[in-house]
């Protein structure tokens, strides 16, 4: 086993333990201990507005699949989609979902159907769609523009894997005078989102959607575990810098290389 593999196992096991630990100690899933994120507050507001206004929300899940590193952002988008459907079940029009990946499209439809059955949305005509808009970034962006420009859409939530083409989506929302909540794991797209979206999700905020939308205490435990690991990484980085300054880094590398 390589050092990278060993480190990976340790990290995963530690994460799993921390998540279980925090999910046990946090019996009451309250959100009072997490910092407020404006984008998720905006999502809750827009859900309420959609209920009152008789409009619908648009959730675009991006073009990331489940077989790559972008899968995490795509799954995070699916989690947000599920929460939004549950919260907006009393809307006249359920949310509409769009994807740029075939697998995510299938999963989105599965999530929609499962959630709709769970909340007893019997009218299939009102079931939110999870259509595949396009298989390339710009075809997906161009196809999504049609949904964004629908007058019945009151807000757009872009959570998933996007490239720089997301500026099309955010700009279209701006032209429709609808708020845009956007988050992605791709860094260039984050820069675009920061510049063009009304409520951006930066970095790992995308993965905290379940905790902020009330998906359960395991999501809160995930955030707590991430915080623990974030501090661990900080101390490791600072320690590495210190060791490098002291010249001990080479000794450590050699020691690790010898042991592995």
């Amino acid at each position: 086993m390589s050092a990278t593999g060993f480190t990976g196992i340790v990290v995963i096991v530690l994460f799993l333990g921390l998540m279980i630990f925090f999910s046990i100690i946090n019996q009451e899933p309250k959100q009072k201990n997490i910092r407020p994120i404006q984008a998720y507050n905006k999502i809750n507001q827009e859900i309420n507005v959609a209920v009152e206004d008789g409009t619908q929300l648009h959730i675009s899940l991006g073009r990331g699949g489940i077989t790559g590193p972008e899968s995490a952002s795509a799954l995070a988008g699916l989690s947000i989609l599920k929460q939004v459907i549950e919260k907006s079940s009393v809307c006249d029009y359920p949310p509409v979902a769009s994807t740029g990946n075939a697998v995510i499209s299938i999963l989105a439809q599965d999530t929609i159907q499962g959630t709709s059955k769970a909340i007893s949305i019997a009218d299939k005509g009102k079931n939110p769609s999870g259509e595949l808009v396009g298989v390339t970034p710009f075809s997906y962006a161009a196809g999504t523009l049609t949904t964004i420009r629908d007058n019945n859409v009151s807000a757009n939530i872009h959570t998933g894997w996007f490239g720089s083409e997301i500026t099309w989506l955010t700009t279209a929302g701006e032209r429709q005078s609808t708020p845009t909540i956007a988050g992605t794991a791709q860094l260039p797209a984050q820069a675009v989102i920061y510049a063009s979206a009304s409520d951006p999700l930066i970095g790992e905020e995308l993965y905290a959607g379940g905790a902020y939308l009330g998906a359960g205490k395991i999501h809160l435990a995930s955030i707590s575990a991430q915080d623990v690991f974030r501090w661990i990484i900080i101390f490791v980085i600072l320690g590495s810098v210190l060791l490098k300054i002291l010249g001990i880094d080479i000794f450590v590398e050699n020691s690790l290389a010898g042991s592995m």
């Binding site: 990290v11 995963i12 994460f15 799993l16 998540m19 590193p69 899968s71 995490a72 952002s73 799954l75 995070a76 699916l78 989690s79 599920k82 999963l107 599965d110 999530t111 159907q113 499962g114 794991a185 860094l187 984050q190 930066i202 970095g203 790992e204 995308l206 993965y207 905290a208 379940g210 359960g216 395991i218 999501h219 995930s222 955030i223 575990a225 991430q226 690991f229 974030r230 990484i233």
Partner: peptide, 28 residues
Amino acid sequence: ARGLLLGIALGTITTGIRILMGTDRPYG
């Protein structure tokens, strides 16, 4: 970018663990 990627990596790990734990089931 490194900091963001670290955060994204942490989020990815937790998301994956939730999938493995079965708490998140996007597969219906």
